[in-house]
Design a protein around this nucleic acid. Structure first.
Lengths: 331, 331
DNA sequence: CTGTTAGCGCCTTCAC
DNA sequence: GTGAAGGCGCTAACAG
């Protein structure tokens, strides 16, 4: 296999521990022997085995991250943020898709445990309290991004869904809309409820009744498809504006509109959520609520670092901001 | 720490080796002791240490994947494909961004080596022959997806860039266009050259001169920005159609057009490359060349599995297909 | 300053 | 069928 400490020890006529010390810049080591060993090691192409090191130090310098799918641009940005901070801090990232299947998620977490990861990050988990029993025994810090189960488990990073959603709907109301619809996502119960709540709060504050037929929760796992499916209900309910669970839902909705000759924003105003990169490149450019996704990923990893450092770490809730573009217009 | 073989051996009043055998369904083991030990292990929450196992078996069940950034939807799909096959085969995936920086890429690969990954997958590497010396010594199988250095190193998965590009430009020529531009990507030299070659071949075949002013290689690392920057050159060269290096470049170009009142496809026809998911949701929907990205990821991981299994594995070049939508029209 | 010893958690011959 | 012993590659006390 690859060259080991022993190999280079033999070559240098010293003991393995001397080699170890030299390579780790241990204080009590001869300057010349150290230099000699180091050059020898390089020459022999020695690369220390992280697995052997982990076994003894009981630290793997490894983070496990469970996501739904990296094909979701929101998730991708989380990953980017986490990876950035992790890499800088010397950690490697295990990435595993759960495809939003709670069972797979549990399986992945168990794999991570067996790999003795130093910490775990889970995006959009729907597991919730199941974790309590499974993970409380483990000493592994775990932080959740956009946990989808009600109740605060462990350390979490949230976004101000309700406030953001309310801002979106406030904006529509200001534009004179009264029949405002909502197209939601059933597979992300908590964010969905929070955004729906913001929607309702905005309406109530403006003394507009909340009408069930204006709220659509299409039974699909695909964001785009949900948007397209929700359109029928919006038309039937005579909505003049729609707030969508996220940008991809809005994009699906808009495509459906185009096919039916419904003009955006002349006939229908549309607001999304997330501000994914493409949002500003659409024609018309999408009005949406911006979420600091990369920042959330960074923060998650920074929380991990704090936790690993034994610090007390607070849950974080980041704010989001309305970005008005071209899909919303005065009624 | 966590419970070990010894702990459960003590609890069961047997030796550690017996426990090991029981848990691994070794043949020579008492049926009842086995059952007893298994239930005991579950009860005590025993999770075997993959790191200890790796140290002894010299196999980590781990794959290292180096990417530019997961925020690129093309890369994200590669990752999805790899992850799918890897997970099924029992492998975990280390993911690391290089941000398209060759130096970082080398650093990441070294980290992977120290972690003793069983294999490495690199996306859009610009390293090339540097690998020869560095990795030839290692016994780790390595497969490259869309290698960006000329010359075939190791095992690779390619796409028929030239054929796809030619199909795109053929399509524009059929529509009556004669002044067709190309906006390329300098940070992906090989794919860019291949697509540019396809562009040139199509023109030559139609007896249309290749004019340098119709070829733009904006000095930027952002796809969208390249598209926007390239527009000026296209306008100056009086292009009536443009073939872009990829979809995101096309999207940037289209945005620039909108700002200048240039209508797509009436004033300018545009073709992209990749067929990222959003392409069909744009208005007008983007004409492009579809790349089987997820399939490429799967294939990469399957090649790894073959290699790990000692099989002789062939490089693969997948074909792509023109998808005509709404951004191209008769001149 | 350097060598020796022990052991991280597990598997794998060997004995019994 | 089960136990004892050795070792994977490395670090961390101890000695010297």
């Amino acid at each position: 296999m690859s060259v080991s400490l022993h190999d280079i020890a033999k070559a240098a006529n010293v003991s393995p521990s001397t080699v170890s010390r030299a390579l780790n810049d241990h204080p009590r080591i001869g300057t010349q022997t150290k230099a000699h060993i180091k050059s020898l090691a390089k020459e022999m192409g020695y690369i220390p085995s992280a697995v052997a090191q982990s076994l003894i130090t009981n630290k793997t310098w490894t983070i496990g991250m469970v996501i739904t799918t990296v094909a979701d641009p929101v998730v991708a940005d989380f990953v980017d943020g986490v990876d950035e901070v992790a890499q800088t801090a010397g950690y490697s990232l295990f990435l595993s898709n759960s495809r939003n299947d709670p069972q797979r998620e549990v399986a992945v977490v168990e794999t991570f445990q067996s790999r003795r990861v130093d910490a775990i990050i889970v995006v959009a988990s729907r597991i919730g309290s199941t974790y309590s029993s499974k993970l409380d025994q483990l000493k592994v810090p775990i932080v959740l991004i956009e946990n989808q189960k009600h109740g605060d488990f462990y350390h979490s990073i949230f976004i101000e869904n309700t406030i953001g959603a309310k801002a979106a709907v406030d904006h529509l109301i200001e534009l004179g809309h009264r029949r405002i619809g909502f197209i939601g996502a059933v597979d992300r119960p908590k964010s969905n409820d929070e955004r729906l709540l913001g929607y309702k709060m905005a309406l109530q504050q403006a003394n507009i009744p909340v009408e069930p037929e204006l709220i659509s929760l299409p039974d699909s796992n695909d964001d785009f498809e949900r948007g397209q499916r929700g359109l029928a209900e919006m038309v039937a309910a005579q909505a003049t504006a729609v707030f969508c669970y996220n940008d991809r839902t809005a994009i699906g909705l808009i495509k459906g509109c185009e096919q039916q000759g419904i003009l955006i924003p002349q006939h229908l105003s549309v607001v999304g959520f997330d501000d994914i990169q493409i949002a500003s490149y659409l024609r018309p450019a999408l009005t949406t609520v911006r979420q600091p996704r990369v920042q959330m990923g960074r923060l998650a990893m920074q929380m991990i670092l704090g936790l690993l450092d034994g610090q007390a770490v607070q849950n974080q809730t980041l704010s989001c901001e309305l970005v008005v573009r071209q899909t919303t217009a005065r009624k």
